[in-house]
Design a protein around this nucleic acid. Structure first.
Lengths: 148, 148
DNA sequence: GACGAATTGACTATATATAGTCAATTATTG
DNA sequence: CAATAATTGACTATATATAGTCAATTCGTC
């Protein structure tokens, strides 16, 4: 059991690198990267505008890294800050027209790519994979919480 | 199909971060990190000593990053360079006693941890997961090759 | 409402990744 | 064997990650 999981972990490392690199290529023309794209996604998919720290938590990343990316995205006009009625410093991050357009274009680019990648994959296997990864994620997140 | 895979991809990103962070904690006392550990593993598991570029290829990483880590590991006495009869510049990387001891200790530390993590996971699901990840890896590696 | 705890953004340090370039060296091909 | 191509380590640039610290601010509790 454990040894199968050890091999799986190495696959996760490799896959992560490959997916980030391919993502970078997919959205490079839009002035985006995999990380910027992911941040735009978190902003776009939130029901209401959120401060940076909340976005970071929803992505499982450190505030500091997300803050840097958000600041760059603002510099380049993809996002804007709105006043937060509940907090003077923690501004709410919103998408600009440019940001929304970039995210939607990225989404349209991603669809055929991910469909091609998924082609022929067994639906049952895919569901099992999601189950396993979700279980591992939960256990590791709990472990990380305990370490604090 | 595609949308299930999109969610799976986000899980891979998250899992990668969690696994690296937990790996860092597991081997910190040994003077190692997740990345150093992985490099030591590639050296230890190779049948014969390899130059840095070969190690990098076997791990799916860029030469430059592996070179930096190997140089640091040499600085701290975990690895040593041996002359390569087939290439004057490309020295062969070998484990020192200290390096081998650290890797073996890390391996012993990792076993109960990974067994705990694997506990209760369905064997069939685990096999399906490895199939899916291996398929994705192969397709993405092919795609990356085509881009060069 | 005062006081301590938690949150937040700003700043910094460090580790790791992809990526480009260069000279030295090795392999290949005609 | 000479010319060319490929590989390799060294150096550099840049992006992204975890992580620590600090002051400003908000929240919770008494």
């Amino acid at each position: 059991m454990g040894s199968a999981l050890s091999l799986l972990i190495l696959d996760v490392f490799r896959l992560n690198g490959l997916l980030l690199a391919e993502g970078d290529r997919l959205v490079a023309d839009l002035g985006l990267t995999s990380a910027r794209w992911q941040v735009l996604g978190a902003i776009a998919l939130a029901e209401t505008p959120q401060p940076v720290a909340w976005l970071a938590r929803s992505m499982g990343l450190y505030r500091q890294g997300v803050q840097r990316i958000v600041n760059e995205l603002k510099q380049e006009g993809f996002v804007a800050f709105a006043d937060n009625p509940h907090h003077r410093r923690a501004k709410l991050v919103t998408l600009t027209k440019k940001g929304r357009a970039a995210f939607e274009t990225a989404d349209r680019t991603q669809k055929p790519w991910v469909n091609r990648l998924a082609k022929g994959l067994n639906t049952v296997d895919l569901a099992a994979t999601r189950r396993v990864l979700a279980t591992l994620r939960q256990r590791l997140e709990e472990e990380a919480r305990e370490d604090d």
